[in-house]
Amino acid sequence: MKILVTVKEVAEVYDDFEISGLEVAESSLNYTLNEWDNYAIEEAVSFAESNDDVEVVVVSIGPQRCEETIRMALAKGADRAIRVWDDRLTEQSLVSPNVKATILAAVAREEDPDIVLTGVQASDDGFGATGVALAEELGYEWAAVVNALDIGSDSSVASVHRELEGGIEEFVDIELPAVFTIQTGINEPRYASMRGIRRAQGQPLNVKDLTDLGLSESDLDSSIHLLSMNEPESESEVRFLEGTPEETATELSGVLQELGVKE
């Protein structure tokens, strides 16, 4: 069995940040593995550890900078990795879910996995759409917002729990091959071991561009474009308590007592 895991290196914005044009200034950003993808990697790797003949392949769309993050996925136990990049992607103000799905589908067609795991969403742009769009591109079945995954012994059906709102979950049987978008909390992601990190340096990381994948510039056509980026205006009516911790704590205690806390 082969499991393909899509991972994304996401940008986190520092508490104090600046926006320049249509981007957050590079100096305000910290790059890291998308939290949801970390759970997807764990789900694939732990399944591979407890079953025979399971290959875990990681794919990521991103510039060379991402290789450190991709190596982290390898260090956690993935077998090999593919990075897709093309300078033409940097010319886009935003890479739409449809374009990401088109690129990932081209990789998936080459790899022919039984299962594709993605995160529910990425913490930076938060579209939450790429995984299910990818399933439709591939003609795979799918389930979104999965918080429990049980892959059947005959590899034809998986039983999943989908997280709905309000603490409700839905139980669904899904025919394979399928794409599952993985929710946080589904497992306990491991930390990479020192041995894993050393081993990851020598593991295969193939780099492909659009031409390698049989795609052309028209596959990057997107009808959605970023027009502006700004800090949201706060409609806050918050009263900030100021001073040393002792002063703010004293003032807060007064407020709480007035509100009737611990009468």
Partner: peptide, 24 residues
């Protein structure tokens, strides 16, 4: 609506209809 169930079919609908999707 941007809900668990919409996340489970709206992106597929967009691909099948060849339309752009913007969420949330």
């Amino acid at each position: 609506p941007h809900t668990s169930n919409s996340l489970d079919f709206a992106p597929a609908l967009a691909v099948r209809l060849n339309r752009p999707i913007v969420t949330d």
